[in-house]
Design a protein around this nucleic acid. Structure first.
Lengths: 337, 337
DNA sequence: CTGAAAGCGCTTACAG
DNA sequence: CTGAAAGCGCTTACAG
């Protein structure tokens, strides 16, 4: 590909001058600007972003560290939002093949070695060594669903607490009192916030908290299935269950049906996320909507603001959640009585 | 971050020598190698990939141009395979924010400006200007589901033709003779291959081809829903329908049920792709499995081979497909009789 | 075995 | 308004 030297030669000027017209410096005569522009056109010249980055220190690249499969619908929607926001920004997105389990590996070094302008992190534990190092590095960073912050690090998350609260209230209004919570991984911020919201909801409806109604899981279909099987073996099984994710809810429903019971006839089920499939599933899933696409878009907008302005305060944004009522919840009618 | 100069100073050697130990040149004395290694350790130095790339011409970056939403399960699985294959290769993946509709924009320039070592293209029309330019550029390229090739460009795809053929045979064995094809976009290679397989299947079972049984669509849920509604209005509606994708099949089933008919009682439905949801759907979907994850892995392996060896012949690989029989197909029993 | 020098493709003071 | 020169962080012949 033609280099800036080729253009300079073609136009009969110096490379410095070519550089100035590329970068829209005002102090270039109209005449030489024309000459240079013609040469650029003729040679189909495009500046090499890499070389430019070496001197300006900017790569026009945003890195992403996502430690969750792309096949996870939540991840897919997030990436779609990120992609949308990036579209005409001039930035490209780089997925880093991070070897987080290799003690020799440093995520920060990886980012610096690639000159990344900013980075988004999703699905990595807040107190992972790499994350601490990242925060201290001063690389503009946005965390998703992790309440980490730093001088140049902000985060964004859904209002998980209120989401779970709404689920409980909805079920309580339908007459449910035995409401289980099929949870995520203990310690995960998302899980803890929703657990808090669940307890808020119980309290608001004067329903006592029962430890045996809490099942830990890992957000997957399978963990929903397994957890529900255990709940069904309780002396007093729940009449409703709130799930940490829609995928887990699908597993829960499958377990209930396998057990010969019906959703929502015997047991009501609420999901979390409102993934595309929630609507197609039978019964269509009552769930908490997260504006994941919006989160993806906003997170990039904020990140770019941080990149462009060193004084931009690291944002902490909470995106509202909402209850979507479909077919998987109904009036409580105690089964087996 | 520490540069090679810092390391050289710390170790008391030249930058050339540091470079040699980094790159495992043999002609360095054990003693200075030690000194340098210590300095590297001390300063936590990592070579700057960008700067290195400027001189070696390699960026250790693979670009990806995907013109389909990440939320498409097929895309997600493909990316997951790509990710897996990239994991310990030293390459990172860059998603290019390509402005394909901007006439000023050149995809090849974009790749060159970023020094990409190779690129994978999915979901872009074969005769898009950018694609032609790309093939001619000599940048190592792998196309997915597009039969483009070039001096440095190969492709990979599922055996679509045989997949569709198997679907028809399966339905014919169940006694179906009125088999519709809810197709994709006319002109798309994937669509044409499957249409050919569909006709192969009809022929093998001596079923005449009926033009009114072909419905074009765009692979989406909605196009399945709309297409099926039209098929149901035919004087002689089909008793079975083969779909271009699982998502379209879900739409088809929804249309059938909305019409008051049952799947598979009244009409059998076969999908294509075998996405994760196919198994969870009710009725669980009979479909053609594509080894999408494997395609993602192989495609990167081939691409890296092409990158590393200029003489590596551009591969054209066809991944086998297979029929997965579930609950959405059953013996033909003509309804409305 | 070691290092000085040129160069990858750019930008940025600075001198004229 | 224009351009020579230094430099971003590396690698690679080449001389010693």
């Amino acid at each position: 590909m033609a280099s800036i030297h080729d253009v300079a030669k073609e136009a009969g000027v110096s490379v410095a001058t070519v550089s100035k017209v590329i970068n829209h410096y005002p102090d270039v005569s109209e005449k030489t600007r024309k000459k240079v522009k013609n040469a650029i056109e003729l040679l189909r010249y495009r500046p090499n972003v890499i070389a430019r980055g070496l001197v300006t220190g900017r790569s026009w690249t945003v890195g992403v560290l996502i430690n969750i499969p792309f096949t996870n619908p939540y991840v897919a929607m997030l990436l779609e939002g990120i992609k949308t926001a990036l579209e005409n920004s001039g930035y490209d997105l780089m997925r880093l093949s991070a070897r987080l389990n290799d003690p020799e590996y440093s995520f920060v070094n990886h980012c610096q070695s690639r000159n990344l302008d900013g980075v988004v992190v999703f699905g990595v534990d807040k107190d992972h060594l790499s994350i601490q190092e990242l925060i201290e590095s001063g690389i503009p960073t946005m965390f998703v669903d992790t309440d980490a912050t730093g001088l140049r690090a902000g985060n964004i998350t859904t209002d998980n607490r209120n989401g779970a609260h709404m689920s409980v209230r909805h079920l309580a209004q339908l007459g449910h009192r035995r409401i289980a919570y099929l949870a995520g991984t203990p310690g995960h911020e998302v899980n803890e916030s929703r657990l808090a919201g669940y307890r808020d909801g119980l309290e608001a409806s004067s329903i006592p908290y029962r430890k045996e109604y809490i099942m830990s899981g890992d957000y997957s279909y399978d963990s929903g299935f397994q957890g529900m099987k255990m709940l069904l073996e309780l002396d007093e099984p729940p009449t409703a269950v709130i799930c940490i994710s829609d995928m887990a809810a699908f597993g829960v429903i499958h377990a209930i049906e396998t057990h010969g019971l019906n959703v929502p006839g015997d047991i009501s089920v609420v999901g979390f996320d409102n993934i595309y499939e929630a609507e197609l599933f039978k019964p269509a899933l009552t769930t908490i909507n997260q504006n994941i696409h919006t989160i993806g878009v906003k997170l990039i907008e904020e990140l770019i603001s941080m990149i462009k302005n060193p004084d931009y305060p690291p944002p902490v944004v909470t995106e509202p959640s909402s209850l979507i009522i479909r077919e998987s919840t109904a009036k409580c009618r105690e089964f087996g009585e």
